[in-house]
Amino acid sequence: MAFFSSPNERLAREIIDRYPRPRSALIPLLHLAQEQEGWVTREAMVQIADLTGSTPAEVLGTGSFYEMFKFHPVGRYMVNVCTNISCLLLGGEELLEHVESTLGVRSGGTTDDGLFTVEEAECVAACTEAPCFMVNYRYFHRATAETFDAVVADLRSGRSPLVRGNAGDRGTMPPHGSLGRVRQRIPADRRAGIVPPEQVDGPPAWLPRPEEVGSDG
């Protein structure tokens, strides 16, 4: 039984097509699997192995190195609270404690209703906007306990909390697993040509041929 839905399988092939070697698509495909299911299942890894010419063990081997991939079900909303140095200085730990006590789970845990998973995070590149947290990898800058409470209330009642983020982000908040809401699409007639490295044996067209000039370094 294939794991990917048929539109996602088409998408997976389109992604693979953008790389000189299929294996390079492994991480994007793990993301796609997580987008479909909320986490990375065994069936997903088997099919990704098949699509990228690797083994399921290799897929797990790569995937398990990266923190964002979850190999067990997690909440619909992933809450990451940064406690690294800049956030620590301005209350990151207190914010994490507030999040943990409000939701009743420690870092790593998921609420009983399956809505929220909490994680203590390393620096997420919002240091001047400390303290900060993310929900499904969307930013909430200069956050307070009240910001977090309002975000939770929004999510519980189906509203998008992004306007509260102070991070220039707007629109909807997709469930855990989805990242960018826009996908790259390369129209077939606009492709420069992506081929395995072995099939390239000379400089690209816009460089002067070696016989015309000495060398360009």
Binding site: R18, Y19, S24, I27, P28, L30, H31, G63, F65, Y66, E67, M68, F69, L179, G180, V182, Q184, R185, I186, P187, D189, R190, R191, A192, G193, I194, P204, A205, W206
Partner: peptide
């Protein structure tokens, strides 16, 4: 996507010999 559609990326950038595919790749936390 905009740049590809406007002949700024991909085959024959701005009608010249320059042909480059730019692919967005994204990591997973490390």
């Amino acid at each position: 996507n905009e740049a590809y559609a406007a002949d700024l990326v991909g085959a024959g950038v701005l009608g010249t010999d320059l042909s480059v595919d730019i692919v967005l790749h994204w990591g997973a936390g490390a």
